[in-house]
Design a protein around this nucleic acid. Structure first.
Lengths: 341, 341
DNA sequence: TTGTACGCGTTATCAC
DNA sequence: GTGATAACGCGTACAA
C-alpha cells in the first residue's frame, strides 16, 4: 500500500549510474549524453520517481520559501494583495508560507520565528504590529507593503498622489466644501499621505474644507452609524453648499452613499463622493462609486521583484550588505464612475 | 555579518553534552535532569540558537505542511475560507503552503506535484478543475471543500437545507411566485443542492415558481446587465404578483436589489430578495440583504479536523486504509435582514 | 562525461 | 540519564 519512496540511489542501481549522475540529470542535464538522459528519463517513469525537494533544500540551503505575514483576509485589499503575491510563483518560482496575524503582535512574532525555522529566504510583511526596527533585526531579506518602513525596504501606494487626484476631481466638480473622513492614522504610515494630500490640495486651491478624523469601527453596523452621523453633520453645517466627500476607503464611501441615496432616492446634486482602493464594493454599489484605485497587482509584483533581488544578493559568495533602504511607490489611478461628474 | 548557524553540535560542544542529549532537550526534556535542562537552556541563549525545522523534517519525515489549492481570492467566500483554514494553525500546528489555481487545470496539477515534492502531509482542495478520481490517485490525505467529491473526503455546506430555508422564508413572506436565479451547475457538485432545495420546497408547498439558469459573467457590469434582464423579465411576466427572488449568491442579490431600488427609490412591497453566502456585500447593501449564511469558520475547522485525523492515521505503524469516504455537511443559517419581512 | 566520498542538521536505535 | 553512530536524500568538491 504505502509504496516506499524511490531515491537517487534506487535510480542509480536501476540504471547502473552513480547517484551523482542522477543528480546531474536534474541539475545539469546537458552534462550527460542525450542517450544517457533518455535512459534515466525512462528509469524515472519505470520506478515512478517523485522528487524530494525537502532533501534538496536541506542539502543546498535554498528553500525557495518566502514567508508572508498578513493581518487578515477579511478586507478585500489584503486578500487581493495575497492573491497577487501568490501569483508571482509563475514568474519567480518562490513558494509561500502564509500566516494570518490577526493584528496580534505576539502571535506575529511567533509566526516569524516559525518562518525562520523553516529557512525562508525572504519575508513579506503587511502587518502593522511589529515596528520596522524589530523586523530589520531578524536580518532576513525583507519587504514590507503599505506600512511604517523606517528601517526596512518597502513598497507602498503613493497615497499622497492618490489623495491629490481624488481631491482635485472634487474641486473640478465645483464642490463648495470638501470633507475628508478618515481614521486617526499615525504620520509615519503611508496612509497618512491621504490626509496630507487632501489638506495640501485644498490649501493650494484655497477651498473650504474640513478633516473629520474618527474611529468608525469594523462592523457594517458601526460604520453605518458613524457615516450617518457624519452625514447629518454635513447637512447641518454646510446647508446649500455642494459637498465633496472624500472617504478613506470604499467601504465607508459605499455606506455613506447608501445613507444619502436612501434619504433622497438618488444622489443629489449637492453631494459628490469619492472613495479609495477600488475594491469590488465600489463598483457594486447602488451607484458605481468613483475611487482612487490601488494598483495591487503592481505593488505585489514590485514587492516580489525587490525581494528577489535582495535574496539573490544574499546567495552570492560575498553578499554586499545593503547600504541604503529602498522605498518604492506605486501611483494609484483615479477611477471615475457615477458618484462624481 | 552573516553569522554562521549554530547547530546541535555547537551546543553539545559548548555544554559538554552529546548531540543526542541536546535533541532530547527539545523532544523529551523530562528525560534530562532539571539541572541539565537549565544548562542547555542557557547555552541556547548564549549561542543564540535558531532551530532548523527543515533538518528536523528531513530526519523524521513529518513536515507538518498542508498544501492548499484554491481557485482564487477574489471571491470573498474563498478568501474567508482560506483565512479560517490558516487560523487553524493555532489549534493544529500545521503550516500551509498555498497555491492559487486560477481555474486552470494544468497549472493546478503542476502545483500539486510541487506540493508533493515538499512532502506535505495532507492537502485541502477547493478548486474544481481536477476530478476527485484524479485527486484520489495521489494517495495523500485529502479533504475537498464544497466541490465534487465522489472519490475523496469532503466538507460542504448543506446547500439543500440552505435553499429550503431561503425558499421557505419567501413563502412565509406571502410571495405569489418564486424565482431562483443560478448558473447552470452540474448535479454532482454541492451547489446543485440550492436548485434542488428550491424546486422541492416549491413543489411541496405547491407554489408557482420558475428556475432561471444562465451564465451571468464575472464583472459587475456583466452581472448588472444580466440582473437587469432578469428584472425586466419578472416585471413583464409576473405583473401584480408578489415576487420572491432567491439569488444564488449575495453579489447577484446586491446587483438585483440595486436595480430594483433605483427603479423605485425603495424596495417595493411586491419584491422580496434573498441571497446566499452572507458575504460582506449583503450586509453593506443599500438595504441589508437577507441571505443564507455559510458557516465558513465551521467548514474550515471541520475540514482541518478531518484532515488531521487522516494524517495521524497515516503516521501509525500500520495505517488502517480508509475504507469508506467521509462527507461532512455543515448546515447554513438563515440571516434575516431588510429584504424580507 | 562519470564516479567517490563527504556534508547538510536533526532523529532513531542501540548501547552503557 | 546519557552517548555513539547510523540513517534521512540530495548536492558538490575532487578525482578519474
Amino acid at each position: 500500500m504505502e509504496k516506499k519512496k524511490i531515491t537517487f540511489a534506487d535510480i542509480a542501481a536501476y540504471t547502473n549510474f552513480s547517484k551523482t549522475t542522477i543528480s546531474r540529470y536534474f541539475n545539469n542535464p546537458d552534462s550527460l549524453t542525450l542517450e544517457n538522459q533518455e535512459i534515466i528519463a525512462q528509469a524515472l517513469i519505470d520506478l515512478d520517481y517523485q522528487e524530494n525537494k525537502l532533501a534538496k533544500v536541506f542539502a543546498n540551503g535554498k528553500s525557495e520559501f518566502v514567508g508572508i505575514i498578513i493581518p487578515n483576509l477579511y478586507l478585500h485589499y489584503y486578500a487581493e494583495m495575497l492573491n497577487q503575491i501568490l501569483n508571482t510563483y509563475e514568474k519567480f518560482g518562490y513558494k509561500f508560507l502564509v500566516f494570518v496575524g490577526n493584528h496580534k503582535k505576539e502571535t506575529e512574532q511567533q509566526y516569524i520565528h516559525e518562518l525562520l525555522a523553516y529557512k525562508i529566504e525572504g519575508m513579506i510583511v503587511l502587518s502593522h504590529t511589529i515596528p520596522s526596527e524589530e523586523l530589520a533585526s531578524y536580518h532576513v531579506p525583507l519587504v514590507v507593503i503599505e506600512r511604517e518602513d523606517k528601517y526596512v525596504n518597502s513598497v507602498s501606494t503613493d497615497n499622497y498622489m492618490g489623495a491629490v487626484q481624488g481631491t482635485s476631481l472634487l474641486i473640478k466638480n465645483n464642490c463648495d466644501v470638501l470633507l475628508h473622513v478618515n481614521s486617526p492614522v499615525a504620520e509615519n504610515v503611508p496612509a497618512f499621505g491621504r490626509i496630507q494630500g487632501f489638506l495640501d490640495t485644498c490649501a493650494e486651491h484655497n477651498i473650504r474644507h474640513e478633516l473629520i478624523l474618527r474611529d468608525v469601527g469594523h462592523s457594517h453596523q458601526e460604520i453605518r452609524k458613524a457615516m450617518y452621523e457624519v452625514y447629518q453633520y454635513t447637512k447641518q453645517n454646510y446647508p446649500g453648499l455642494k459637498k465633496g466627500l472624500f472617504l478613506s476607503n470604499d467601504t465607508l464611501a459605499n455606506s455613506m452613499l447608501n445613507i444619502i441615496f436612501r434619504d433622497f432616492g438618488t444622489l443629489p446634486d449637492d453631494y459628490r463622493i469619492i472613495g479609495f482602493d477600488d475594491s469590488p464594493v465600489a463598483d457594486g454599489a447602488i451607484l458605481p462609486i468613483s475611487t482612487v484605485g490601488q494598483q495591487i497587482d503592481k505593488i505585489a509584483y514590485e514587492a516580489m521583484e525587490l525581494l528577489v533581488t535582495l535574496m539573490n544578493e544574499r546567495k552570492k559568495r560575498r553578499p554586499a550588505p545593503q547600504t541604503k533602504l529602498i522605498h518604492k511607490n506605486v501611483t494609484p489611478v483615479l477611477i471615475r464612475r457615477e458618484t462624481t461628474d
